[in-house]
């Protein structure tokens, strides 16, 4: 599978390009009062109003400080036959690489400093470990409540 590699809070992450619609610059983010803390706001993506998630906060890695270089990865998250569009804040896009699923290591369970249940595995390139996120797992809780 092809994976988009990016950095967030000095950590290295990846996510399957199957879920990635676009990477955009963060602009015109509108904050939503009373929204859950991990929702940074909403933005206009191709005429649709979509939520922008503070990914770091969502996976319990901290809180993203918005800067001029902040990027938003627009994800398409599938649930059942539907899908929802959601943006996630990241620090920097690094690369898009092809990885073999067999080379994906099981995610470590402890002491990672964030919620590792959101990972589908870990991918090692030379000295670097990339934590491969699963879009479905990140929003698992939210998707469950959608199904009622």
């Amino acid at each position: 599978m092809h994976v988009l590699l990016f950095s967030l809070q000095k950590e290295l992450f990846g996510i399957s390009v199957m879920n990635v619609l676009r990477v955009i610059n963060l602009e015109k983010l509108i904050k939503i009062p009373k929204a859950p803390v991990y929702i940074a706001g909403v933005t206009n993506f191709e005429g649709n109003v979509i939520p922008v998630i503070d990914l770091a906060s969502k996976i319990e890695l901290g809180k993203t400080d918005l800067s001029a270089t902040s990027k938003v990865v627009i994800l398409e998250v599938y649930h059942g036959e539907d899908s929802i569009e959601v943006g996630v804040l990241i620090d920097e896009v690094l690369d898009v690489v092809q990885i073999e699923a067999v080379r994906l290591l099981p995610p470590p369970l402890e002491n990672m400093g964030f919620n590792t249940n959101t990972l589908s595995g870990i991918y090692k390139v030379e000295e670097h470990f990339y934590m491969i996120l699963s879009a479905g797992k990140i929003f698992e809780k939210e998707l469950v409540s959608l199904v009622h």
Partner: peptide, 12 residues
């Protein structure tokens, strides 16, 4: 524009 499903808890 309707709000995305993730924002439905914000009902104000």
């Amino acid at each position: 524009k309707p709000l995305n499903e993730l924002l439905q808890s914000v009902d104000c």
